[in-house]
């Protein structure tokens, strides 16, 4: 069974003369346990797709089915929130500045009706490599990497099946990025998660995903396996251009 299926998704922003199409007729499916990447440059609409799935964007048309549940507008059922969670790009903006780690995690669990919160928080913090000593800290007492670990712990709190990752490491230093990518890889194999990851960095997508869609101007240019990417076995010139400039910047 597919974890996510999208058919003919269009997203419009604005209205009247200002109406712009941010995503144009996008279709894809993500199998259970798969890691699917969305790559493209800024403004290509890759993050918009994640936000549509999460129910954070109004005004889209098409069909999206997540874990057997058909999605409508911005409304999402309680069961959806239990199955799908998201990690945001900027760990400095994704944690409430006045709430301790404890408060963030316990509220996430309360909302899902989870009991024995105390024990679970300790386990979650260990799972993301922070340890119980971080439980009562405020975000400003944490580094960027630690904040992102808290954000991942929050996303894991309802024990979801699918994680939407919106450039989860692009605001972090490379050494911290490596830690977070390793953590995400570990969590996936331990918990059998399905990932949909948005990134502008082909190296990051290549590390974590098995398959990726290349986006440009709101459309899918090409969907291809990471192995094919590595071999530069691509059909579209834009994909080739993107791959070459990415490789050239490392060489």
């Amino acid at each position: 069974m597919n974890a996510i299926e999208a058919r003919g998704v269009d997203v419009y922003f604005g209205s009247g003369a200002e109406l712009t199409r941010a995503v144009n007729d996008v279709s894809f499916e993500v199998a259970q346990g798969e890691s699917f990447g969305l790559v493209g440059e800024s403004g290509s609409g890759k993050s918009t797709i994640l936000r549509v799935i999460a129910g954070l964007v109004p005004g889209w048309t098409g069909e999206i089915t997540v874990a057997g549940e058909s999605l409508q507008d911005e409304k999402r059922s309680r069961a959806f929130h239990k199955k799908v969670q998201m990690v945001f790009q900027d760990p400095y903006a994704s944690l409430h500045p006045r709430q301790t780690v404890d408060r963030v995690l316990s509220e996430a669990m309360e909302l899902q009706g989870i009991t024995d919160i105390n024990r679970r928080i300790t386990r979650l913090l260990n799972d993301v490599g922070l340890g119980a000593g971080f439980r009562f800290r405020y975000p400003h007492q944490l580094s960027g990497g630690q904040r992102q670990r808290v954000a991942i712990a929050r996303a894991l709190a309802p024990e979801p099946e699918i994680l939407l990752l919106d450039e989860p490491t692009s605001a972090l230093d490379v050494s911290v990025q490596a830690e977070i990518l390793n953590l995400l890889a570990d969590l996936r194999s331990e918990l059998g998660l399905t990932y949909v990851m948005v990134s502008h960095d082909l190296g990051v997508v290549g590390h974590l995903c098995g398959r990726a869609a290349v986006m440009k101007d709101g459309e899918f240019v090409e969907v291809l396996g990471i192995d094919a990417m590595r071999r530069l076995d691509v059909t579209q010139p834009y994909t080739r251009h993107l791959l070459e400039s990415s490789i050239r910047s490392i060489r």
Binding site: H81, M86, F88, D90, A93, E107, L111, Q112, R154
Partner: peptide, 21 residues
């Protein structure tokens, strides 16, 4: 802000978001 999006994704309703966040 993303932290409000995040709590919405946890399933919090508008009253909870307004009063507690």
């Amino acid at each position: 802000a993303d932290f409000i999006h995040a709590i919405r994704l946890q399933g919090a309703g508008p009253i909870r978001i307004i009063t507690r966040h």
